[in-house]
């Protein structure tokens, strides 16, 4: 139970803050969030298989002693892979859910994708990092989980924009932005192997959390993305 709390506390806090800070007139889209949260949990399975394949069958292992291999491992496994599985799960859900049964406002879609990212981060914590010490798990709660949430926000904004314009391009832009951010957050110490480099990750995370919070406050509570 303690482990579960340690791995998920920040997801819960972020989610509660997002709901409380946005939904004043409307009911929060609980059903949609449950659906996206389940999608986030399930999307860890292909991500895990994908990362296992990379680490077992190729030289592109994130812990490789070769820095280029390690960087590519992070880029393909964590960046391209994980972000694809998260975004594609959300997009697939948006594709299959009937528009008349779910309210698809911009804020709802963004909240759905953030929920998906948070669920993904929580399961990642439980499956891959639960062996870490308490301090590290807490620091992952402060950095890694909000990062997954930020990526979810980028995905959500891209999906909402895609809905508005009936276009694929915003999704690709959102995907590649999240891939670049995710890769750079994971590989700061490979790109710049200096003593103080690990602070970059904290700074990046802080900047993303700040920008994410600011963006979330700007998103209107009632703005439909469906073209009339």
């Amino acid at each position: 139970m303690n482990l579960l709390i340690l791995c998920t506390w920040s997801c819960i806090l972020i989610y509660i803050w997002m709901v409380k800070s946005k939904y004043y007139w409307l009911k929060p889209p609980i059903k949609l969030c449950i659906l996206f949260g389940t999608g986030g949990v399930l999307s860890t399975i292909p991500a895990l298989i994908f990362n296992l394949f990379l680490s077992r069958e190729t030289e592109l292992w994130v812990y490789s002693s070769n820095k280029i291999h390690s960087f590519l491992g992070f880029f393909i496994g964590a960046g391209l892979g994980e972000e694809f599985w998260k975004l594609s799960t959300g997009v697939l859900l948006l594709f299959v859910i009937p528009a008349n049964k779910f309210r698809l406002y911009q804020a709802d879609i963004v909240l759905g994708f953030v929920t998906l990212g948070l669920a993904f981060g929580a399961v990642e914590n439980l499956v891959a990092y639960s062996h870490l010490d308490i301090e590290l798990l807490i620091s992952r709660g402060l950095i890694a989980i909000p990062l997954h949430g930020s990526m979810g926000m980028i995905h959500g904004l891209a999906a909402a924009k895609s809905f508005e314009r009936c276009s694929t391009i915003p999704l690709f832009i959102g995907y590649f932005i999240s891939v670049i951010i995710h890769t750079f957050c994971d590989t700061w110490n490979i790109i710049l192997p200096l003593e103080f480099t690990h602070y970059f990750l904290t700074l990046t995370a802080a900047a993303l959390i700040f920008l994410g919070a600011k963006t979330w406050r700007k998103i209107p509570e009632m703005k439909s993305v469906i073209q009339s």
Binding site: S162, C166, T168, L171
Partner: peptide
């Protein structure tokens, strides 16, 4: 569902 074909296009191209 088919009005959202751009989502499917994204999935196929990205995959």
């Amino acid at each position: 569902m088919f009005s959202k074909e751009y989502l499917l296009r994204f999935l196929i191209i990205a995959a």
